[in-house]
Design a protein around this nucleic acid. Structure first.
Length: 883
RNA sequence: GCCCGGAUGGCGGAAUUGGUAGACGCGCUGGAUUCAAAAUCCAGUUCCGGCAACGGAGUGUGGGUUCGAUUCCCACUCCGGGUACCA
């Protein structure tokens, strides 16, 4: 009776498929549970061992919830637009759809081999025209929505009030006005361009080192006409919404940081000799008295007016140089501060002092107002700049006990912490905040500014408009036509989806033309009046399809609408969403934004899409490096007595943990693992490796470990000679119920590693006992089922059941069996455990004390010392303090 | 720099609200089985000393609170992730 997984597993996979065991019905009478995986990009390389990690976790929970009586929605699909298929098309001429189809088929085959309980009738694919139709439809909703700042919500563009003066200016002005309000708009934008991918990319896709997230090449700035989405309108809503979500704190933090809210004030400065005001944004209006100069960004619109005659040349040169610099150079912190004086002065409103206006590239046009007031005494950047250019430094916060107080007070050192205000009063203007603390100082100054009409409290966000178009072929076409008279119209709903044209060549243009501009026939359109137009040639980014896929699973075949209203109300929100942390600010922020727009429009019923989020940790691999840190491919490493050596040079190597990579030859393919050990072993090992949310290295010996467990479990539980009738042994039934409880608790908390350990412990005991009752065996099969479903189904059928155990009720824990009458107490002396003593749980404390102190073992530890204290914690510990 | 996370045997990792550190698995050691090996089974396995009983040390480092700290507090080191002239 051998554990023949290679026969047993396909048998049950076939059974599940033929019986549609995991087909989800929209039975609204049952409690629902929507459990979602981040769907994969079907790459040509096939599944990586990282995929089954999250997928197994959600599968265990799905199977468990079904047994608990829930109606479970657990679907799978493919995020199939993307560059690799297109690049392959450029090289070989194969249509990306063909490559994509092939890869999806391979992914499906691999996923099915793991025995995951998806409802395959709900499979979706973002490249499917039936899906694209609704992605384009959502784009149209975004285009036709404006954000009402008073109501703090998106509203249909038809409800946008048009000011009278705009109306009076004519149709074109009205169209322009509306265009400025739409959540999706087409305009010139300073964008990130990847010269390797020949496409633009979003801020979120540019890594810290200025490289493109997809390919690693440095991105550059370009000015191109692009589609953008006004996600900053939703900044506050996206921020507030985080509070009620059951998400990892780290991901919430990352989103908060990315949104980057800061609270401060806008202040208008008069410009000496110019009838204009210079508006700055500051988080510290209370430090106005310390403002000794101002800085405007080189791109600031007032630069040319501010600069005085004799400084014109110097300023122009500086602006030119700044424009040539790459953004990476400009934002390099190590760089020395540069800047030029404009020759003009602003008037500090709190004390009427004239302060010089400088142009410097450390002030960015994209944040705040592109102009700052500089307070060198209390801002390190301003201090650096002031020292470089000999600008006065006025200390306005007394550092009190600080070591270098004198240096700070005299303006020779920067002080960025709090203190009491000094030098912060002016008889001319009547403002005095001396002696106040920070919050009072801010409050008083802002009130004063507001009363004078020269400033007001404002919030600022780092979040920028989302660049939403790409110069690629393999993406959703925008349902947009640009007409020769300048009008822009959208493709009618009944003409959606707007499908991609067939192309001979997929190569993008050198300077940012999409490959679609080659599709003459598709491109040019004429309306019924003979007016000519061109279709939009950009396509949507890959994020578009993944922004809303969780909604389509609810009703994937609906051709009439995006989904059925009742079904959406039943299934949403997603109860648990599992995936990698790399999407913390990309997909997860974009999705939330779209969802909130759809919510405002009354299309979805929840304000947030994903109630609970869980990030699985990355699966790494052991790798080897020489003493100098050079990496060595795994096939050149041999192990001798626990040490590692280079097979060619004989050099001793160090074992490290690193990402799996082709070059290190340590990539693990799930297919190989399944062939060798079976799907249940793969599932079990990935869950047994360690906590789901931590990164951990793959070790094949670990797979052998769980394989041994399954082998032993099969050997014992599949042997009907070991399964008897009658009453269960006391120790066995007690452990069984402890195990049910532990496994249940651990599944609910996604702590699968310890749940598996509990199953192993029970298996070890059963084997030792040699016999269990049929009821025990069936219970064991049930609690094993979420983890190792193939083996569990096999055992279940061996016990004579002729239908799947997928919907068998989860075993109830019999609390009475878990009750203890005695407890084995560890007895400690001065905190050090010395011996154990079994005592009744109902024994009163004083009697326990007597019993313990009278104990022979205890006497040895007390000796001639005095018992100072006796600590007794019921069901925990006894500690005797002697001395 | 700032924000988050982590550090426990030879290895992956366990340890409800502070209460027996090292569950479970791997590896290793010894034994059984075998002509032999693999597989399997049994026993042992934190380190140091000891045949053992047992004793001492021990959860990155240094300090603190406590009868008692892997767990709480303070200061640091190292590793991972995010982010950065954001005013």
């Amino acid at each position: 009776m051998e554990y023949n997984f290679s026969k047993l597993e396909p048998k049950w996979q076939k059974y599940w498929e033929e019986n549609k065991t995991f087909k989800t019905n929209d039975d609204f009478s049952k409690p629902k549970y929507y459990i979602l995986d981040m769907f994969p990009y079907p790459s040509g390389a096939g599944l990586h061992v990282g995929h089954p990690e999250g997928y197994t976790a959600t599968d265990i929970l799905s199977r468990y919830k079904r047994m608990k009586g829930f109606n479970v929605l657990h679907p799978m699909g493919y995020d199939a637009f993307g560059l690799p298929a297109e690049q392959y098309a450029i090289q070989t001429g194969t249509h990306p759809a063909t490559t994509t189809q092939k890869n999806c088929d391979n992914f499906r085959r691999q996923i099915k081999k793991i025995g995951l309980s998806y409802d395959w009738d709900r499979e979706i694919n973002t490249t499917d025209p039936k899906y694209v139709k609704w992605t384009q439809w959502i784009f149209k909703q975004l285009y036709n929505t404006w954000f009402d700042k008073d109501l703090k919500k998106g509203r249909p563009i038809s409800e946008l009030p048009i000011p009278e003066d705009i109306k009076a200016a004519g149709k074109k002005a009205v169209q322009e006005y509306i265009g400025e309000k739409r959540l999706a708009y087409y305009d010139n934008a300073q964008v990130w361009w990847c010269d390797s991918c020949k496409t633009v990319c979003a801020n979120e896709e540019v890594l810290t080192d200025g490289s493109h997230e997809k390919c690693g090449h440095q991105v550059i700035r370009k000015n191109l006409k692009q589609w953008l989405l006004r996600i900053p309108h939703y900044a506050e809503r996206l921020l507030e919404g985080l509070d009620d979500l059951d998400w990892p704190a780290g991901v919430k933090d990352m989103q908060r940081n990315w949104i980057g809210k800061s609270t401060g004030a806008e202040v208008d400065f008069e410009i000496d000799g110019l009838n204009k005001k210079l508006k700055v944004y500051t988080t510290r209006p209370d430090t106005l008295f310390g403002a000794t100069y101002m800085v405007i960004a080189p791109e600031h619109e007032l630069v040319n007016e501010i600069v005085t005659g004799d400084k014109k040349e110097a300023v122009e040169n500086y602006i030119k140089t700044a424009a040539l610099k790459s953004d990476l150079d400009r934002t390099d912190l190590a760089k020395e501060k540069t800047g030029v004086f404009t020759g003009r002065y602003a008037i500090n409103p709190v004390n009427n002092k004239h302060i010089p206006i400088w142009v410097a590239d450390y002030v960015l046009m994209g944040y705040g107002t592109g102009a700052i007031m500089a307070v060198p005494a209390h801002d390190t950047r301003d201090f650096e700049f002031a020292k470089e250019f000999n600008i006065p430094v006025i200390c306005i916060l007394d550092p009190k006990e600080a070591e270098e107080r004198e240096a700070i007070l005299s303006g020779n050192k920067c002080w960025t912490e709090d203190g009491e205000y000094i030098n912060s009063a002016s008889e001319k203007t009547g403002l005095n905040i001396n002696g106040l603390n920070k919050s009072a100082g801010i409050k008083k100054t802002v009130t004063w500014l507001a009363e004078k009409g020269i400033g007001k409290a404002t919030d600022n966000y780092k979040l920028r408009d989302w660049l939403f178009s790409r110069q690629r072929y393999w993406g959703e076409p925008f349902p947009v036509i640009h007409w020769e008279d300048g009008e822009v119209t959208l493709v009618e709903d009944n003409n959606l989806p707007l499908q991609l044209p067939e192309l001979e060549k997929y190569t993008p243009g050198e300077s940012g033309e999409s490959p679609l501009s080659n599709a003459e026939e598709w491109l040019n359109v004429t309306d019924k009046n003979g007016r000519k137009g061109r279709r939009e040639t950009n396509t949507m980014p890959q994020w578009a399809g993944s922004c809303w896929y969780y909604l389509r699973y609810i009703d994937p075949h609906n051709e009439e609408s995006i989904f059925d209203v009742e079904k959406e109300q039943y299934w949403m929100p997603v109860d648990l969403y599992v995936g990698g942390a790399e999407h913390a600010v990309l997909h997860l922020l974009y999705s939330r934004f779209w969802h909130k727009v759809l919510y405002d429009l009354g299309i979805v019923s929840t304000s947030e899409p994903f109630q609970k989020l869980f990030n699985q940790g990355m699966i790494l691999a052991f790798a080897y490096e020489t003493a100098t840190g050079a990496k060595v491919a795994s096939d050149l490493v041999e192990e001798r007595e626990g040490k590692y050596y280079h097979t060619e040079t004989g050099e001793e190597l160090r074992q490290i943990v690193a990402k799996m990579s082709k070059s290190l030859k340590n990539v693990v393919n799930p297919d190989d693992v399944i062939d060798k050990y079976g799907a249940d072993s793969l599932r079990l090992y990935e869950m047994f490796m360690g906590p789901l949310d931590e990164r951990k290295p793959w070790a094949e010996n670990g797979v052998k470990g769980v394989y041994n467990f399954l082998n032993k479990a099969y050997y014992f539980f599949a042997n009907t000679n070991n399964i008897v009738d009658g009453e269960e042994d006391k120790e066995t039934i007690k452990l069984l119920h402890q195990t049910i409880q532990k496994v249940e608790h651990d599944i609910e908390n996604l702590k699968f590693n310890t749940g598996i350990s509990a199953l192993m412990v029970f298996n070890n005991l059963a084997k030792k006992k040699g016999k269990v009752t049929r009821q025990t065996a069936e219970t064991f099969a049930k609690i094993l089922a979420p983890y190792a479903p193939h083996l569990a189904e096999e055992l279940w059928s061996i016990y004579g059941n002729n239908k799947t155990l997928a919907y068998e009720p989860w075993p109830e824990v019999d609390e009475s069996l878990l009750k203890e009458n005695t407890h084995q107490y560890p007895v400690s002396f001065n905190g050090k455990m010395r011996f154990k003593l079994e005592l009744p749980l109902d024994m009163p404390k004083d009697e326990i004390e007597k019993t313990v102190l009278a104990n022979e073992n205890a006497q040895k530890w007390i000796g001639d010392k005095t018992v100072r204290k006796f600590i007794f914690v019921p069901k925990k510990i006894i500690n005797v303090v002697v001395g």
